[in-house]
Design a binder for these strands. Structure first.
Lengths: 235, 235
DNA sequence: GGAACCCTTTGACTTAAGTCAAAACCTCAG
DNA sequence: CTGAGGTTTTGACTTAAGTCAAAGGGTTCC
């Protein structure tokens, strides 16, 4: 596989040519279509993944069938690395499983599998990767803490407003000119599961924000009509 | 300070005598009483902490004054290490703050401050510490994921039951003989904040579980009367 | 074009959990 | 012992959000 892609992945950005080549040798590329399962939480752990194109959701299903999305992984990013370090002894045991489910949300979602054993060896020989990995984990921890804060201390309206704002800040949309808008790349059902609610409530919340002239929803496009009010309502 | 204490901390367990001594030189011990603030989220980041004795809560306050507890840190464990790796460039800037508040929950809570700059240098020279640190982060990530799952997919009753069970499994109580019981080391108010609810709801939930003969609450002691039902109700 | 399908919205209803306020309980200092 | 403080429980009420069911709307594929 092409090493140029791996270079874009944060944790590998410090590797030299030789290390890169070694890495390329051990990893396998897979392509998925929308709705395909990358792994279930019942499968033995093989290693972690890197997204190259497309979108991946990491999610759990409750006993009564409700789904909650823990992460949405955009390329180029890693997922399922946590088990690598969790119980250093048990990692090669058959009973060691993935901690959640992963599904491709777009067609042509391409991911790279980095097998656990080989990668661990690479890690042990390179502090730089370790520190990059630590920084990746740190960011994810921050994100999860933020997510918990949102879920426990804020109601759905605040969460929706907050989501629109971070989404807007993350991709100061080059496509839609100077317009203050965002484009959802996931279904509303998935968005609801990510925000810890259900689609009906999400729908009503959008309507409420629309009635108050704060946003305007046209399918997957959300126009921010009153940034000040939106910020106010998200707090 | 005494290096024997630091050795018990997981991430330092692999250090040799010399490294240990170096570490001891740079760190500072502080003692707090119940209710004392260790740091606010408004303070500039100095470094991370290790608990030696006592109990520490890491928490956030919402705009309307509600509190949510992100972690309860028992000795010997670290906290506030995440900022170390988050934005490697900005760490020494004055504007770099702690991400949440930390408060001692018991008298004689002793913690060690490990200053950021010196520790980073140590890290760069030692893969073993890095990997230990990674494993610590991994465990915390797992914990947070689990916490999110609980908060979004389960109601308060299930969360309370789940809390009792994990608490019971974590300290198969040597003090109370063969009895199936746990002892809360935090106030019910704090427990409520940790479970993402409020004290009234927690109180009612305890009562409900009591009425169903599943547990018995006597102040800070909780007796498990029907383990099977408790497990059932936690799912 | 239209049938089949999925995704989303809307409405009516239920329920879990939060709010507010008062009472009960606990414990510790004087 | 007593009273002031905090903590916990209880009760009556409100409300946000979930459930269930039906109707719209848009896409795709023969």
């Amino acid at each position: 596989m092409d090493s140029a892609i791996l270079k874009k992945v944060h944790i590998f950005s410090g590797l030299d040519e030789e290390e890169m080549e070694q890495l390329c040798k051990i990893c396998r590329v897979k392509t998925f279509n929308k709705g395909d399962i990358i792994f279930f939480d019942t499968e033995p752990y093989l290693g972690f993944y890197i997204t190259i194109t497309g979108l991946v959701k990491i999610y759990k299903i409750s006993k009564d069938g409700r789904e909650h999305i823990l992460h949405l992984i955009n390329p180029p990013n890693t997922f399922a690395e946590v088990p690598l370090f969790e119980n250093l002894g048990e990692i090669h045991e058959e009973s060691y499983r993935y901690p959640a489910n992963a599904m491709a949300l777009e067609d042509e979602t391409r991911v790279v599998l980095i097998p656990a054993r080989q990668f661990t060896e690479l890690l042990e020989s390179d502090t730089k990767i370790c520190i990059k990995m630590l920084s990746g984990f740190a960011r994810r921890l921050r994100h999860l803490n933020h997510h918990i804060e949102e879920l426990t201390l804020k109601d759905v309206t605040k969460r929706v407003a907050g989501f629109i704002l971070t989404e807007y800040n993350n991709n100061r949309d080059p496509k839609s000119e100077a317009k203050q808008s965002i484009k959802l790349n996931i279904s509303k059902n998935d968005l609801a599961a990510y925000l810890g609610t259900i689609i009906e409530t999400l729908s009503r919340t959008f309507k409420k924000l629309q009635d108050e002239d704060i946003i305007e929803v046209e399918g997957k496009k959300i126009l921010i009509k009153d940034m000040k009010k939106l910020k106010e309502v998200s707090k």
